[in-house]
């Protein structure tokens, strides 16, 4: 079981009665939480890890069949919670990983305390009566955009990103390849992420859940938050005084405060 901790480069920090498991979303890795962690670690034990195929995870273990749906990532999360013997942790998932947290919570039942969803979307694609924000063609175009950056990612991007001699701590992080993924994996994960439809799983989530939204989130339209509170048994919607899709990077203070308020009631 310690294998799973190594495979995902699982890190634990902070101290407190409750444990938060922070799950990064599509596009980057666990360092996305770096600005939020200092604001929470005095009161909570905090676990972060890299989704398989991202960041410092063991990329050689990426199996396109296992990760053809979010279930593979949810199984990894279940394994991590089990390996660390966490007592009713709070699963905090960003974007698509809010769905991974949902799937894991549905499987773990009472062994999970609560779920926090940062800019979640159960389906990025529009359906009848549901506004996800994108049409299937947009997702195909995204895959093309990834292709257009395929050559760049693998050669020119890496050295360019390394060049910040004035900030040695950044260099350290860059060797952990921030936002860099094997292009084939990135493409595969993009397809899995943006074609997934987990509306039924979200609607079945019995846990207390916090849905955090931002204004002007181009990835997740505002209607999604309304849909979620209307369809989930115990969800609370909070709209942050923030814009964009990554408030934990751009507005760490607001994000941390909202999580704390939700947990302390």
């Amino acid at each position: 079981m310690t294998d799973v901790l190594q495979r995902h480069d699982v890190r634990t920090t902070g101290a407190g009665d409750r444990t938060l498991v922070l799950i990064h979303g599509y596009g980057c890795d666990k360092t996305m939480w770096d600005a939020v962690i200092p604001l929470l670690q005095s009161d909570y034990r905090i676990v972060t890890y890299d989704l398989l195929g991202c960041g410092a995870s063991d990329i050689s273990q990426y199996d396109k069949t296992r990760y053809a749906t979010l279930d593979g990532h949810a199984s990894d999360l279940v394994d991590i919670v089990t390996a660390l013997e966490l007592d009713r942790p709070v699963l905090v998932g960003h974007s698509v990983s809010a769905m991974t947290a949902t799937l894991a919570a549905n499987r773990l039942g009472e062994r999970v305390g609560a779920v926090v969803m940062v800019c979640p979307s159960p389906s990025f694609i529009n359906h009848d009566g549901y506004v996800g924000g994108f049409e299937p063609e947009d997702i195909d175009a995204l895959l093309e955009t990834l292709d257009a950056n395929y050559l760049g990612w693998s050669s020119e991007m890496a050295p360019a990103m390394m060049g910040t001699p004035d900030k040695p701590e950044h260099c350290e992080r860059l060797t952990n390849s921030f936002c860099q993924a094997d292009p084939d994996i990135a493409r595969h994960f993009a397809r899995v992420t943006f074609r997934a439809d987990h509306r039924a799983d979200v609607a079945a989530l019995p846990h207390d859940a916090l849905v955090l939204q931002c204004r002007d989130d181009v990835i997740v339209p505002e209607q999604v938050g309304a849909w979620m509170t209307a369809n989930m048994p115990a969800a609370k919607l909070v709209t942050l005084d923030a814009t964009g899709h990554c408030p934990h990077i751009s507005y760490p203070r607001e994000t941390a405060d909202a999580i704390r308020q939700f947990l302390e009631g």
Binding site: Y26, G27, M161, C246
Partner: peptide, 26 residues
């Protein structure tokens, strides 16, 4: 473009904020 929006918000903006720069993004 719609695809570019997703890419910008999931990749480029986080990189700008964390790393401070990006280069030659198609």
């Amino acid at each position: 473009s719609p695809a570019g929006r997703i890419y910008f918000e999931t990749h480029i903006r986080p990189m700008l904020q964390v790393e401070g720069h990006v280069q030659e993004i198609a």
